[in-house]
Each structure stands twice: as structure tokens, then as C-alpha cells.
Amino acid sequence: MPKNQSGGQRNGGPKRRQPAVALDEDNPIILAFTKYSNELTQKHDRHERIVKLSRDITIESKRIIFLLHSIDSRKQNKEKVLEEARQRLNKLIEVNFRAVALELRDQDVYQFRAAYSPGLQEFIEAYTYMEYLCSEDSQNEVKCVSDWQALQAVMQYVEDEPPKPKDEDGNEVDTALSTPAEESLKKFQFFVDPTEYVLGLSDLTGELMRRCINSLGSGDTDACMETCKALQHFYKGYISLNCQRARELWRKITTMRQSVLKAENVCYNVKVRGGEAAKWGATFDQKPADDVDEGFY
């Protein structure tokens, strides 16, 4: 005999459904949560739009870097390649970064930092690599690239002019008598985070290492030596930073160290083998010891 003879209900009968209570749309709590929901939806949509723009910037920046690596002293195509790369980089600044700046306008940029960080770092890598190649032909011994403030000064924008009003016949109305406040256009900018600049600039060393190896293949041993010196200067500056708690920067410095050793191995082959270094290549089979302390472990 079952212990409960009331159909399995402890209270002695089937449960009755409570009638649905109509929500009061004018309730302050309901209004507050509706507002929060709309804000989160708008933030999510803005985040997705910025991610798509950043993806386009990343893809185009990688293509520009690949274009810059096509420079060959034997083909004498440096000026042509640099001019094309400069135009494509300016287009990224005027179109893609302008669109991101419009999305971030009047917003907390650090809330959306993860959305545009990959594209910004890849762009900084391409932009500084183009500047380094441009400075190779200069008379100055020290090669230089733009700092984050110079890059910030480039990414300044002005609102588009509003369309002029038209009359019934479709002719533009003269607005010369409008007030100065109506004529003034608002300015805005894309914020270049100094941290993102440091991370993006550290990726430049990988391209310089490839530049060093490619120069060996084309027989331009002077470029090998100059590029190796630039890599050593970059590495010396980065290991002087206190970055024990900055995991991403520490990982990039470790990769930078590998690039410096590869470039030094190329220069060693050039010094030892001379003109035959290009035939031997730049093999790098040795790995640095784990117990070597460079000041950032």
C-alpha cells in the first residue's frame, strides 16, 4: 500500500496553477531593467561592429607587410613598393580607423580595447616597418620610426559636412548667413593606447629578422648588418622594461630574443663565409639555454 494515497501530492491534492499576473510596464524596476537591457544590447552590437572592422584592418595590414617583403635590391622596386604601401596605409587610417573612431566616440575606449587591439597592433607593425624601410636610404645612421604620439597625431578626424538644404526645385540653398556654431564641425580622434603601441612595435622585430634573412638571399649583406644592429637596439630597450607582471609583453620579448639570435647567426655566416653565405643559407638549429638570464625572467 503506498504511503501517500493522494496521488503523489504531499499536500493532499493536485497543485493549482497560479493565474498569470500582468506586469506593470510603468513600474520603476521594470523600466530600469529595460534600460539596462537596451544598453547591453547596444554595447554588444557596437563590440561586434568594431571586431569586424578590426578584422579587416588585420587582414589588410598583413597584406601590406607581405608587400613590403617583396622589396628586392636586384629588382630595384623599392620606391614603387613603398609608395603603394604608403597609400594603402593611409587608406586604412582614413577609412577603417575613422569608422572605429566613430564607433568609440563618446564611449569608454578601454571597454572595447579587446575588440580593436589585434587590428591596431598589426597596423602598428606594418606602419613602423614601412617607416623603417623608408629610413634605410636616409643619410642618418640611426633608423627611426614614429612614436605613439606621432601616430596619434595622424589619426585626427573631422565630422563630415551635413548635406546642404534644398528648395522645392532641388537647388541648394545658400547657408552663408548661418551662425558660426552651425558651421563649426566637431573633431574626434582614434585613441592610440601607448600599451598597444609598445606591443605592436615589439612585433616589428619579427619582420626585421625576416628582412635580414631575405637580404642575405638577395646578396645585400650591408642590409643584413644594419638590420641586425636595429634588432639589437630594440632588444636592449625592451629588456630594460620591468615587465614581470606583463605576460603578453614578456612573451613578445622572448620571441624577440629568438629573432635577435637568428639575425646574429646570419651576420656570423656573412662574416665567416663572405660571399658564400647566401649559398649556405641561415640555418638556426640552436636554441637558447633556459638558464640564461637576460634581466626579465
Rank of each mutant, 00 (worst) to 15 (best):
K3A: 00
K271V: 08
G119K: 08
D203K: 00
V260H: 02
P19W: 12
E172P: 15
L82I: 03
N4G: 04
T255F: 01
V173Q: 15
L102G: 10
F190T: 14
H69Q: 11
K143S: 09
L120W: 00
T34N: 14
V21W: 12
N90K: 14
P288A: 13
Q232S: 13
L261Q: 09
A277W: 08
D106L: 04
L133Q: 12
L82V: 01
D45I: 14
Y238M: 13
V95H: 04
P19K: 12
H44E: 12
Q258R: 05
A20R: 15
Q149N: 14
Y116G: 00
N27S: 15
R16H: 10
N242P: 03
S117I: 02
Q42Y: 02
D169Y: 11
C224G: 09
K186D: 14
E172V: 10
A85M: 00
L40H: 07
L201D: 04
Q87A: 05
E131Q: 13
G217A: 03
H47I: 01
L67E: 09
E48C: 12
D220P: 10
P194Y: 02
L68I: 05
M209D: 04
K279E: 15
I124L: 11
Y36N: 07
Q152K: 12
N4P: 10
C144N: 10
V292H: 03
E136D: 12
E103M: 12
A101W: 06
E161Y: 03
F112P: 04
D160L: 14
V266A: 07
V173L: 15
N4C: 10
E79I: 01
G12Y: 02
F296N: 03
A230I: 10
N214I: 06
N96P: 02
R10H: 13
D167H: 09
F234K: 07
S202E: 09
R63V: 01
K287T: 13
F234C: 13
Y110V: 02
M130E: 08
V142L: 11
H233N: 13
S215E: 11
Q244L: 08
L241F: 09
L104C: 07
L23S: 09
E161N: 07
E136V: 10
A277K: 08
D147W: 05
L89G: 01
L177F: 13
D169G: 04
A150K: 15
Y129E: 01
T34V: 02
F66M: 08
R63N: 11
C224L: 06
K15N: 11
K143C: 07
M155G: 04
E183D: 10
M209T: 04
K186M: 09
V51I: 15
L89M: 08
D137R: 12
C224N: 08
E207A: 01
L133C: 02
T58A: 08
T221L: 14
